[in-house]
Amino acid sequence: MIKVCDLSKKIGDVQALNNLSFEAKDGQITGLLGPNGAGKTTCLRTVFGLLQADKGHAEIDGIDVAKSPIEAKQKLGLFPDPFGLYERLTPREYVSYFAELNGLSRQEAKAATQKVLTQLHMDDIADRRCKGFSQGQRMKTALAQAIVHQPTNIILDEPTRGLDVMSTRVLRDLLKELKNQGHCVLFSSHVMQEVAALCDQVIVMAEGKVVAVGSPDELCQQTGKDSLEDAFIQLIGTDEGIAA
């Protein structure tokens, strides 16, 4: 479970987060929906302890990230934006490296890596260096890294950017599977279909604040619109920065 309470953060002169509070529950996929510049990435980075909040705190399974960063991070998997691949390593080395950093022994890390590589159908590229990978191959490598140590909570920052239909499907199926296994999945996005198709709960963000919370259907009902897209525009009051 990921819980964010009263988070405020100023970057330069911009109030990136403004008393942001929400909760992402286990066994659910929570979508953080907002236009570009709404503070989605800042929020996720704060949850990871990369940025320090001016006010408020973030909890992972009840552990305060700012107070016990290592314990909190052990319960997290991150699919970052941008991916941050090591181009000179192979996916097998890359994934197993991060598995070891998460406390797995070398043997365990190797076994876990093999498992996740098979799960993501990556056996054909597992021993090729990441340099020159396609966007889909990069996505899979980053995703494998995020879930290899079986964290209870998985955070994905804009996971479907630049992916083709096939890769998007792989990602979607995996997220659903994680949800069914009882993981807490939190992802940020500005793509409506994706959010509508996947999320149990949508948190609509604008200008660092939560504008509305609810399932896609609830949001439509709340605003009296037929589609999530229309509901979203109604909620944030502008159509700036939205990808259909």
Partner: peptide
Amino acid sequence: ERNSLALLLSHPVS
């Protein structure tokens, strides 16, 4: 520059 520093720091390593 390759954006892997933030990723590394997000892992449970001091």
